[in-house]
Design a protein around this nucleic acid. Sequence first.
DNA 1: GTTGGCACCCTGGGATGGCGAGTGCAAGCC
DNA 2: GGCTTGCACTCGCCATCCCAGGGTGCCAAC
Lengths: 396, 396
Amino acid sequence: MTVADRRPTRGASASPPPGRPRDGLDVTDVPDDAVRMRVPLRMDATAERPDAPASDEELDDRKRQVLRAVVSEHVARREPVGSKRVVEVAGLNVSAATVRNEMAALESLGYIMQPHTSAGRVPTDKGYRRFVDDLRADAALDGPRRELVHELLGSATDEEDLLARTSSVLSQLTRLVSLVIAPTVETARLKLVELVELAAGSALLLLVADTGRVEKRAIELPAGTTETDLDRVRSVLSEHVRGRRLGEVNAAVRSLVDEAPSDLRELLRAVADATHSGLADDTIHQVFVGGQASLAGDDAFEREHLSRLLELIEERATLARLVADATADDHPTVRIGQENEVEDLQAASLVAQRYQLVTAGSLGVLGPTRMDYVSVLATVQAVVDQLQESLTDLSS
Amino acid sequence: MTVADRRPTRGASASPPPGRPRDGLDVTDVPDDAVRMRVPLRMDATAERPDAPASDEELDDRKRQVLRAVVSEHVARREPVGSKRVVEVAGLNVSAATVRNEMAALESLGYIMQPHTSAGRVPTDKGYRRFVDDLRADAALDGPRRELVHELLGSATDEEDLLARTSSVLSQLTRLVSLVIAPTVETARLKLVELVELAAGSALLLLVADTGRVEKRAIELPAGTTETDLDRVRSVLSEHVRGRRLGEVNAAVRSLVDEAPSDLRELLRAVADATHSGLADDTIHQVFVGGQASLAGDDAFEREHLSRLLELIEERATLARLVADATADDHPTVRIGQENEVEDLQAASLVAQRYQLVTAGSLGVLGPTRMDYVSVLATVQAVVDQLQESLTDLSS
DNA sequence: GTTGGCACCCTGGGATGGCGAGTGCAAGCC
DNA sequence: GGCTTGCACTCGCCATCCCAGGGTGCCAAC
């Protein structure tokens, strides 16, 4: 519902000029020759979906070509595509009538459909799925854009800054909603535990990880807590908890409670409560979102729907889980339309990828089903690469 | 462009049930009898606007009644209102024709207009302005809602939490976009300065204010910085900077640079740079936003426009300035349509108010010009009151 | 298997016309 | 003089209609 923010992109270079049309940045006009082979890519297995046919090879070459043409034309022109157009763009040496036959076949196989009788065809979710699965090769982002990513992410000062920038770059390049989930801090090392007395009776517990992540938590001090008590607790904490992995911190603090002299016990218990809630699973996932405006600009969603999508996005905890769940392995994942379990997302697609194998963060973009998967995949991949690199730089 | 977030509302009570229609909370059906007198209220002076007539009294009683009827009916029904309806709702003992004459007069005075010949009338910005100015008395929020606000804000743990909740409550009650700007930390006292070494060659500067606000900033350590150097700087900082107002911190650090032994100078300079950028005017304004989805639901804005509004909202720095600028004195301020300087806001209205006289934070809501000013003003006022109270509670 | 031809279907974009809501004006009423 | 009633008029809205265009499926021919 509510979104806290600390104005992420500080550098002038990071925030794009406020002018309306963001030109020259979007990925939709990636020149064809920039699409060269790179690493092979595996996606969500089709086999998982019940309605997907077991056979990988029910589509002959030409059908595949036709499907590809339908998808890319539809993505580009945003309207149903007819047999004639397919002939034009697919470069097939057959007549429109032949293509019509193929299209009829594709339709009965469930890959494409007509919005109404005697209109052109539109890809179904299954069609998009097939299209994506058939992308044997990853497209690389073209030089200039790659450069841009490198520049923007390279100059980040700390992890938070870096992730904010990443989100910004992603949404600008794809003109979709970008979602960046910070790495879990589970495995990060605790560098500092501090207890700062604020007003009388309350204090702030500070946990600083070696990634630069800072967690804070207010604590009600037990009545009669003295300055000395605080000092003692501080040093106990420093001694026993500092250097631990964040995932272990809560347990560690808890065990301190029992061992501690009884007059400190209550205070330590308060601290334990704080580490518990402060390091809880869903608190820990920082989420950076950018480019929400792009949703409103797209007519794929009508108002009612749009509104629900925005609500979904404001619900950061859900969002984080969503993206994290989608990125099980280290390959880019695409969830198309109905493949999304959340109802409001069933007219949308999510392209996401994990980064940082050790501490598992994830990022992705969200947009209408009719998105340019080729460029988007290229962009996500490139951004992940650069992000990995920058993260490594930061922690060395 | 990008929004960092740490899932603001932790308590279950704070985040509303995820169900679609948020019933029973919105303020639009505040019962009439809940609208009783309270404190007198002064708004943006009409005198400021060039097109506003100097005379306060060009409108006789009946005209005012008609105007009021037009405004409230239009707000409620979202369509042009005709003479007949005015007669019904205004409770005037005259015929529709008479009202028509009055309406013609009001139109020629610029208070209302016809979207097209022979349609009902719609208030102009000037009409809304007059309507708002004529609200001599503040309406109080009704008991249950007041209670709700109290409950939600009362249980906040720290300032950040409190403000996030405030934003949430505001947007839920008004079904508009809520904007909450954190108080400037200028006058807050620095409780802790810490320098935490992260990876080799970099450290994190931590500034903790007595409000519980934590600012962090990455620092590149000069080559050859030793652990002892860090210790020395730490203690220098603690000694000379702790306890100062945040507004003075940067100057204080800067003066330390010159006095320090030359081997520490470079390191201190890095710290000074960090305090400079970390405490810069626009970094310092935390902004909490909620209820963006409500914009999408409202048909007052068409898509193109909607998209630009969302962009504006993502641009937190601008947003913060906007709200802060609007709240010059301690009375609720209403900026209606064209009164907003930002072009994209000229079909929208902003109702904002300052809170915490000393450290000047501000909050408000943003929505279509056609909003229910009476309830919105009541809500904003009530929320500000409660927020003040809770803030006082926190710092005692 | 492919192709050209053809009948057919349906959407989308103007025209057209009636309906209703709302207006302004003029003449009459108090 | 102010209020009201009556009335002619003006539009937007909607439903209907029509036409053009793009697309299809099928069939007969290659």
